[in-house]
Design a protein around this nucleic acid. Sequence first.
DNA 1: AGAAGGTTGACAAAATGATGACAATCCACC
DNA 2: GGTGGATTGTCATCATTTTGTCAACCTTCT
Lengths: 245, 245
Amino acid sequence: MDTVLVIEDSRVMQRTLQRLFEADSLVVQIASDGMEGLEAFKKQTPSVVVLDLKLPRLSGKELCRAFKAHMPSVPIVVLSADAEIEDKVLLLELGADDYVTKPFSPRELLARVRRAMRRNGAKTRMVSNVAPQAMDHELLVFKDVQIDFTSMEATRAGKPIPMTAQEFKLLRYLARSPERVISREELLNEVWGYQNYPSTRTVDNHILRLRQKLEPDPANPRFFLTMHGAGYKFVPGHGANGKNS
Amino acid sequence: MDTVLVIEDSRVMQRTLQRLFEADSLVVQIASDGMEGLEAFKKQTPSVVVLDLKLPRLSGKELCRAFKAHMPSVPIVVLSADAEIEDKVLLLELGADDYVTKPFSPRELLARVRRAMRRNGAKTRMVSNVAPQAMDHELLVFKDVQIDFTSMEATRAGKPIPMTAQEFKLLRYLARSPERVISREELLNEVWGYQNYPSTRTVDNHILRLRQKLEPDPANPRFFLTMHGAGYKFVPGHGANGKNS
DNA sequence: AGAAGGTTGACAAAATGATGACAATCCACC
DNA sequence: GGTGGATTGTCATCATTTTGTCAACCTTCT
C-alpha cells in the first residue's frame, strides 16, 4: 500500500489533498509544519512526499534537503505559490523530483505525484550516459506461471516460487523445444553435461520437482507430460492431453 | 545563430552528426583532425564543440585543454568509446563539460549539447585556470543509499561510507545490469580483468564487503542476492517488476 | 496378470556459499 | 627507501542448499 506524506499548513489545502489522494487509494498522512513532517517521515517512511514550500518551524527547502540526505529514493513533489519559485533549478538541486505551482489542477498534481513515484519510488535510478537498463530478459510465460531466466525468478499467480539453478536449466531446455518429446538421455547430455552422468532416474526427480512447483495439479500434469517409453515433453499451450481417454 | 564545431575523423559519424545538428537548426562546422579543429576554433569561435577523443594529429585531450585555455566559455562535449574513459574525473579536469559514450542515442547527444550551451552561455565566467563544471555524475540510488561513481562517494542515510576502488567497480558492474544474475566468472572477467584471475572465492568476499557496507542487515541481504549455483544479482527496489521497461 | 516403465518422498553425500582471519600487496607520506 | 595503514586476494571452517540415489509403490501396455 502506497502512502503519501502531505506537509502543508493550510487546513483547507490539507483537506483538499487528502480527499484527492484518498480517492486514488493512497494512504494519506498529514503534517502541519516542518518539524512534524520530519518526524512523520522518520517514523514511517512514505512512498512519496508532497511538500509545501513555505512552512512554519522548518522551511520546505530544509526539509527537502533533509529527506534527500536521509532517504534519497523517496520522491518529493513540491507545492509552491508561483512567486516563491524564483529558481526552479535550485529546487531541483535541493533534491525535489517535481514541483507544482499553486493554483494547480488536482488532476495535474495527482499525475505528477504518480509519475514521481513511478520514476523514483523503490526503484533505482542509474543516471549515466551509458544506457544500462535495457537488458532483455529471457521470459517464459504459460498459464499463470511466469519464468524469467535472466533474473532467475519464477512466479505463479504473482507469487514467487523458489527454483534452483538446475531446475532453471532443465526447464529452459524443455521450453526451448516445446511440444517435442525429449528423451532422458538427451536431457542428461544437454542439461547435465557429458562428463556428469547421473542415473536416468535423476531426470524423473527433477521433472517431479518442476511439476510440484509449477503444475496446478502435480499429480495430473498439464505442462510437463510423460511420454511413456520415450521421454518428456513440455506443452505450454493448453494441455490437450496426449492420451486417448 | 548558434554554431557547433564537430571534430571527428570518421566520415560516417561526421555525416550523422551534421544531419543531427542541422535538423536542430545549428550551423555545423566540421574538422577531421586535431590541427584542423584547432584552426577552425581559432578562426571562428563556435558556440559549442563536439569532440571525438581519439583523433589524428592532435589528441582530443590536448585539444580540450587548448580550447579551454583559449576560450573557456565555449562548452565542450566529448565523444568517446566506452573503453577510452577510464577516468571521468580526468576528463573533467581537462575542461570537458560533458561526455557521451559511443554508441549514443542522437536524442541524448543533442540534449546534452543543448544543455551544455545553455549552462555555459548563461554562466558568468568564473574562469581562471581551470573552471570545472558540474559534469553529470553517474549516480546510483536505492533505499537510503546513494552512490556517486564519478566522485567515488557513497552515503547511507546521509552518512558517508568508506568504499574502496574495487568495491565501486564491482558495485557498478552489478548495478548496470540490475536484476540480472551474474556469474562469478563474468564478474572476474569484467570487473577484475582477464589478466588477473583471482580465485572465485574472491568474489564472495567482495560481495560480503558490499553487503556489510550497504545492506541494512548484512546477514539477510535485500539488494545483493545470492543465486545458489549461479552467481549474484543486484536488486535495487523491491519492485515485483520483472519486465524490461 | 505380468513386465516394463514411471512416480514419489526420504535421505545423505556433495556442492556451494558465508565468514573471519591472515598474509601479500599497494600506497601515501615521510 | 622505509614505514604504517589501507586494500585485496587466499584460505580454512562452518553452515546451507542442492541433488543424486534408493526403495516402495503406482501406471501403462501387451
